[in-house]
Design a protein around this nucleic acid. Structure first.
Lengths: 202, 202
DNA sequence: GGGTGCATGTAATGGGTTACATGATTCT
DNA sequence: AGAATCATGTAACCCATTACATGCACCC
């Protein structure tokens, strides 16, 4: 009999509750804060945020106040209610889903790499490598910024841990990509000569 | 004007085409083969497979033959057509989407870890660690099996590369998790004493 | 004049999992 | 006797991105 309405009760809503522990903010603020803080392991689009906020509000987990300023669009600023804080804590304690094994189109394409010239696989790997090398410099910058601006914040150690994960992941990715590119080169060398064996003496 | 019908044209369909290069098989076969080969970076459910096969068939990328055996359900065995092979090759050459940064509920919960007792974060990390340690032994077994059963297969190097990715990822995960658990312990030590400072002299 | 930032929201569309429905055979 | 394997398929549901719609202010 209980009305379920589980529509927006997933982790998006809980992520938003988490953000509100850092201060009152609007949906717009959330989006940009996400990009600047947890963007390396979590994303949200407006299409998720606004409906979720509406739902959280209707359930009493957040409270909405509308700020009006001339020359600016209205701002709907949200505040965590005690019920919302409780819900967040409960959710934080629930063990996250174990697998967390995401699909990788790159790996799938590499797996079937024989059906395509080596240089194709090579260039896929090169893009991947580039991405993670860039990520590493972003992580370094972000860490410096956090150490500078959030000194003494008791949350800092937790934030650094998630950053550290990104670093570990990107370092592993870089190492793997480099190694794999070398292997691809070896494959080419061990296959090329067979064709060259006959002629090519000069 | 062109009828699009892009319903099942995504990477699932292409993954299935790839599998069919390894031999004719049914939807059921695909599911189990995926689990045993590319399961560490790709999953498919029947709810995806069967409709996709229907679509691939209607577009002429695969051909269906029904096998009947007494006492067994009918088997719909699919074969790659030349058009399907061409489509696969084209898709393989398209650079995979760059980001590939998936959401992680674990990291999100860790990020907000201060709102919850340390031991909660610790136990989340412990499960994660366990998962990746198990994964490492699975990878070792899988590699041995591949080396044994697929010796000389020209696809082997590509398969080993994807396996190696899994290994790199899990090793990085293990290292990170261990390090993070130590950091959590340090936090506890540096916070505990403050409360103990006053009394507790015995 | 054009881009960017501020600000909210909906609709269309695409992917994906899980549960359901069915049912015989073989292994434990 | 009950679980696992073989085998196919649909429907309900959930989650997520992108495009669309709107519009002012500020900077270059």
């Amino acid at each position: 009999m209980k009305s379920k309405k589980t529509q927006h009760a997933g982790s998006t809503a809980n992520a938003l509750l988490g953000l509100l522990t850092l201060g009152d903010m609007s949906g717009y603020d959330m989006r940009s804060l996400i990009d600047r803080s947890i963007g390396h392991f979590w994303t949200e689009s407006y299409g998720q945020i606004y409906p979720s906020l509406k739902w959280l509000s209707s359930e009493g987990f957040v409270e909405k106040k509308t700020e009006r300023k001339k020359g600016r669009p209205d701002r709907n600023v949200f505040t965590l209610t005690p019920a919302g804080r409780k819900r967040l804590k409960q959710w934080l304690a629930v063990p996250p889903v174990v697998p967390e094994i995401p699909r990788s189109e790159l790996l799938l394409k590499l797996f079937f790499g024989l059906h395509v010239p080596q240089k194709v696989s090579r260039s896929h790997l090169a893009s991947f490598l580039q991405f993670h090398e860039d990520a590493l410099t972003r992580y370094t910058e972000l860490e410096a910024k956090l150490q500078r601006e959030e000194t003494g914040d008791p949350q800092l150690p937790y934030w650094l841990m998630t950053l550290s994960f990104g670093r570990h992941r990107s370092e592993a990715s870089v190492n793997w990509a480099k190694q794999s590119m070398v292997r691809l080169d070896d494959l080419e060398k061990n296959q090329g000569p067979r064709k060259r064996v006959v002629g090519r003496k000069k």
